[in-house]
Write a protein that binds this DNA or RNA. Structure first.
Lengths: 211, 211
DNA sequence: ATTAGATTGTCAAATTATTCACAAGCATAC
DNA sequence: GTATGCTTGTGAATAATTTGACAATCTAAT
């Protein structure tokens, strides 16, 4: 399989979101030109991106919204169920666990774990919060694919290293650190403070306009 | 001022994080070569990136960690205080408000707002959660620069549009929608579900290795 | 003071990503 | 059934980004 560039992958979820909206509004077909105007990108980029995965469109017609939506979903792996746990059941962990749309996309949050005894036992949509000590046996027996790490960097690093031995294939990492993992393990970082710093960069740049 | 590419900006917070750690460990100087090995990037890229903003290093010596840390901080606008509010005081909003490190970087979370009467009045580190109806007067009188939108897309869009008229200069947008704002207003998006989709793309790609 | 070694800043080359442009081919109206 | 108009897929051109290479020059050892 041809290697797809990261720039393309990063754009797919946005296409998926727009197609979902079009679908919800009963739109049956869309041309790259119309979609490009909606999304503020070039039509050429849309066509080029989609062509990495095959010809989904038809000359003189455009793309079938439903079909393209399903195809992109399948490219993104959303046609399969993904069993996840959340490690760190503070506000952020609970926010993720409670986010209903993940369910809709095939993400099953099977359990939450924490080391804080005030949280352990607390009921959530996804069952009672479990003791972090149980997490290693849990992932071995429950076939867990993705671990969301929503806790400070020191425990996150330590726990992630131990979880590697338990067969976890992917981390969704909210801790402010770069996890070091073998090549066959995926790490997707969400560094909120970095995103906020990009924002303040743009703010100070903005305040210089014309200077 | 020369226009700096987005690719460069996105890397600055990571440099900043590594420099902060070096500083905390008492490291005084660092060469682009050593830093490149720590960070898994090329030394050339580090030098090229930094040179967009001026010559911070010295031949035969490298970079002074403290000085470079401060300089990057100032480029990112972290030398100034930024007054923020959080709109949507659910788990995600509270997670952001409670994140202590933001304070350290000059982000002052002045208040939280919500429309849910069960949340209004609840005490947090940043004062009682206020009624969303009060937000418009609040930003006008309290000189608010950044609004974090941690609520579903429909109310997020509606409230953001009204806040534009109140002089808000930047949105940190967690809602799953692309806000449409004038050119002089900044939107920084954090689309969690899109990040999770990138992860599952990589997972399915991974499972194909060698096929 | 001199010298050997290290490391930057920067120019040029290589690579990657985006946009342009158009032939090929389908849809639709007549 | 034919003609017109639309829209894709794709090869080529352009633009942006990353990497390589090295002269200039600083540090530090003797």
């Amino acid at each position: 399989m041809k290697n797809i560039s990261n720039a393309v992958i990063k754009r797919l979820p946005r296409y998926y979101r727009y197609l979902d909206e079009l679908r919800a509004n009963g739109v049956e077909r869309i041309s790259s030109g119309d979609l490009s105007r909606m999304m503020n990108v070039t039509a050429s980029q849309i066509r080029q991106d989609l062509n990495n995965f095959g010809g989904f469109g038809q000359q003189g017609y455009g793309y079938n919204v439903n079909y393209l939506f399903e195809e992109i979903g399948s490219i993104l792996g959303l046609d399969k169920e993904h069993r996840m746990i959340v490690v760190g059941a503070g506000n952020l962990g609970q926010a993720i666990a409670n986010y209903a749309n993940f369910d809709k996309r095939g993400f099953k949050i099977v359990a939450l774990f924490d080391s804080n005894h005030e949280l352990i036992g607390k009921k959530t949509r996804n069952g009672e919060i479990k003791d972090i000590e149980e997490v290693y046996d849990f992932v071995k027996t429950e076939n867990i694919e993705i671990v969301a790490l929503t806790l400070p960097k020191e425990p996150a690093t330590e726990i992630a290293m131990k979880l590697l031995d338990c067969g976890v294939k992917a981390f969704w990492n909210f801790a402010h650190t770069d996890l070091e993992v073998p090549d066959n393990v995926i790490v997707e970082n969400v560094h909120l403070s970095e995103s906020l710093m990009e924002l303040t960069y743009k703010l100070s740049e903005q305040s210089q306009v014309g200077k």
